[in-house]
Design a protein around this nucleic acid. Structure first.
Lengths: 107, 107
DNA sequence: TTGACATGTGACCATTTGGTCACCTATCAT
DNA sequence: ATGATAGGTGACCAAATGGTCACATGTCAA
């Protein structure tokens, strides 16, 4: 419930969705690498990565002086299953089919 | 692209998700009816409904002095198909199965 | 027709958000 | 050891956001 909110809010920013996209194509990127693909200082990127990390969408590991960023798709999967799925299911039950059939017949 | 952003931003607020939930269980509600379920003045609710409408998640029809609100799940379906689906697919290809098999064997 | 009801608008306000910068620490390579 | 490299912190700022209110319009019912 409250956890979902962090995820939704994290997904609400285009820069953050871009970052997730980059990490989707390849994980384990460093901050400076991600920064180089954006028109923004590394401080801005850091803040966005922090938001993603707080939402559990990104996990990190320190390697020497570098910080590697990995994508964690589980939270997206969760809001999908618990929330989005409900709105996206196509209703193709026998009942709605029947209803549509009746409406067509009466027209 | 730009359209997606409106949808993601609209979904980022818990009050708005609550409104979508209410409209999911039953459509065609009026502003005052929706307001009565929230700890907020009708002005706040109006603004939220406006955001949902701009994102295409809610469509409205005027009926006398009332304004009826209807859920439109299509935008959710679109961001699901174009964006979320990619992150939520379970990878169960023969290749990853083989990889897991090898890892188990070597353990 | 007159009052109650449903909604709309614009000003206004506090808080959050997205972004920058100055400065600082830790690590690597020479 | 020393400079270059990678990252971190806190202050700061402008703009967006979430919410309220005073007021105003249109519609229904007695």
């Amino acid at each position: 419930m409250h956890d979902d909110d962090l995820v939704f809010k994290a997904l609400a920013d285009p820069t953050r969705r871009f970052l997730l996209d980059r990490l989707f194509t390849r994980d384990g990127r460093t901050l400076t690498e991600l920064e180089s693909e954006l028109e923004m200082t590394r401080f801005g990127v850091m803040k966005h990565l922090r938001v993603l990390e707080d939402a559990g969408l990104v996990v990190t590991r320190k390697e020497g002086r570098e910080k590697l960023h990995f994508l964690n798709p589980v939270p997206i999967r969760l809001i999908h299953d618990r929330w989005i799925d409900k709105f996206t299911e196509r209703r193709v039950s026998a009942l709605t089919d029947l209803k549509r059939q009746l409406e067509e017949d009466s027209a």
